[in-house]
Design a protein around this nucleic acid. Sequence first.
DNA 1: CATGAATGAGCCTTCATTCAT
DNA 2: TATGAATGAAGGCTCATTCAT
Lengths: 214, 214, 214, 214
Amino acid sequence: MSPKISNELAAARRTQILDAALRCFSKLGLDRATLRDISQEAELSLGSIYHYFRTKAELIEAIRQRSTEAEDAEYLEDAPQMEGQQVIDFAVDHLFDQMNDPASYDANRVAVMLWAHALLDEKTLAGQLESLVEPRAQVLQALQHLQESGHINPNLSPRHIGNVILGMLMGVQIQKTWEPEIDGRKAADVTRAMLTGNFWIGAGDSSKKEQNGR
Amino acid sequence: MSPKISNELAAARRTQILDAALRCFSKLGLDRATLRDISQEAELSLGSIYHYFRTKAELIEAIRQRSTEAEDAEYLEDAPQMEGQQVIDFAVDHLFDQMNDPASYDANRVAVMLWAHALLDEKTLAGQLESLVEPRAQVLQALQHLQESGHINPNLSPRHIGNVILGMLMGVQIQKTWEPEIDGRKAADVTRAMLTGNFWIGAGDSSKKEQNGR
Amino acid sequence: MSPKISNELAAARRTQILDAALRCFSKLGLDRATLRDISQEAELSLGSIYHYFRTKAELIEAIRQRSTEAEDAEYLEDAPQMEGQQVIDFAVDHLFDQMNDPASYDANRVAVMLWAHALLDEKTLAGQLESLVEPRAQVLQALQHLQESGHINPNLSPRHIGNVILGMLMGVQIQKTWEPEIDGRKAADVTRAMLTGNFWIGAGDSSKKEQNGR
Amino acid sequence: MSPKISNELAAARRTQILDAALRCFSKLGLDRATLRDISQEAELSLGSIYHYFRTKAELIEAIRQRSTEAEDAEYLEDAPQMEGQQVIDFAVDHLFDQMNDPASYDANRVAVMLWAHALLDEKTLAGQLESLVEPRAQVLQALQHLQESGHINPNLSPRHIGNVILGMLMGVQIQKTWEPEIDGRKAADVTRAMLTGNFWIGAGDSSKKEQNGR
DNA sequence: CATGAATGAGCCTTCATTCAT
DNA sequence: TATGAATGAAGGCTCATTCAT
């Protein structure tokens, strides 16, 4: 009989290794976690890792891919049927929710590490940027509609609006890895308020105050 | 022989080493840049590094300190005498300007690396957070005033407003290290607009205005 | 089911593996060719190699045996009925022909590798020497006759004549693995000339003749 | 003071390492001798080796260079002022002497290993061939003279004569690494006899007998 | 018999740190 | 104080061999 492991079993092993790697990377960092650490965390031999990942870099890349795929999968499930401001609200809520989820603790930390890692590894950077292409296009389209319809200040560069929105999410995520007590929902409230005119309610301008004030 | 001269010399050597380290860390990463790399970049002997920094960790810490001190020095020069919205505008402009300055290329990259490094090194994290205490207090005070005076939505958590504002800056900085062509000034425009009610102008469509003005 | 069939099958598998091993060893070297390389070259599974050869050393030994057996088989077919100078001529021609045969490319390279390998592995050395016993005895007998009949200088040690003759063949074979454009037949001409007095013809200059003929 | 080691000391360390490497390679083989083995044989730390040789391949190459340089140095000391047959006699004697010298035991074994190694490593092969260029040219010139003056059979290819002569030396050296009791001087006698018409003295042919016979 | 996943000792190489000069 | 040679622990990776299926 073939001892060739079934595809499901092989996938399970990959998952087992990736899970262990995520924990090790989260705890020790991408550079300092060794493959021996990971093999022990996965309760496998060192050599086994190499059946599933040819190099450490490939393992890191697999971690990166899995995390963006996971996000995309959840995200794309609901996003398509929305439009305009909803798209942005949804993205913001979704990402802040994930940031708040204790189960994402390691994933969030490793995500931050990968952002720094992308500065040194072209492949990681390419993967990182590529995973942003589609969400970015969606957001840009939504922003364009909102600018055309006069809701968003048309003098602002859509691309840079996108950078700032994504930046808010990334920047808050970093801070939350530093100070886990930060409440993602409250940060989401702030973000949403900023994006929909409910942050600055302009007391000194009575017309604006009435428009935007609750 | 004069201690003053040797102190100056020593300070110059430290600077020389820190400059070299910044370049090496920027290029190779905190973990992968070796002390030999740094000594060569500084045109010093390997051993001499150890006269000025006892360990590599101490050198990294010194890099971190110097970068926050530099920012603080510039920043605190002008900021104190301002108040209210000015404080925030000033901070935003200041940080985006620095982000845009080609001379800050290495410093910006290393800053991002240090954010990730803080996840693994308690001392780095403590330093990072400590350097935020004062600016954060200033911003919080300004926000409080602006909420009390009715300019900013009082239902939002000041602390989390601070997190989001800082997050925008950090998040855009990361993206700029990935895609240097991002224009920091345009991102600053967006940020300022968001913080002062000029992003979402919700005008021209009364039905929508009512929806969002709730 | 028939044991005969399985024996044939087993022999075929062995041959298949040995052929693959010869190619891998030729290309990568005895130490650097891995059993996985060989299994892939043989289009077999890694595990199946171990059904036919218990260790890598045993596989190498089998390669060595097969190559000397092949030579002996061809060689002994015709050689016995010869005598005197013919024996030597025949051996020289035979070995140079094989050296020249493109089909022997890998075998010749691996033979050279095995000569070096014999320095480290007693079993290989023993096999190597043992395979020389019979041809050496034949050659020695022929040499003895030729010395007794006055054809070959009787002051020379037969054993060392044998060493030099075999050495010529081995040494030219090494050079041909380095520089494949060497023409084995021309080297055979030289060798045969040396062995039969047609190399140094010392003619035409009586003064020199006397010098060298002493 | 500069701890920079003097050039002589550095050269001594290199020699120390090369000597140790030669012993280890001789005993264990080029592939199987580890750098740790060598460092221990040299009574140095493992890391130290890497101050003097960047890689194992470079160490092997240094071994190869040193051995050919040593030969050349001795050889060229006396060879130039000779001509004709003397050149060949001298080369033969010189190489057989070295082969016979117990102090060359390891060097001779490693030389054989390098011949096989050259099949796998282009740089080794290039070095090997390059070291033959000059002696080969000398020998070819001597052969040409001897053919023109009618001493050597003009129908033989000079290049292949050279291959056979060098081959005799190499082939006997291999056999001597296998069977150290082989007497290099006696093999030298045989070789010299073959090269000067004193091997085949042609009893059955009276004309030849007179020409070549003693 | 066949298969290839699993094992883990061991290899080459790197690098922070020490220390004799 | 300055230098860089020396140290050796540790890391990524390989590979002969075993064994469950």
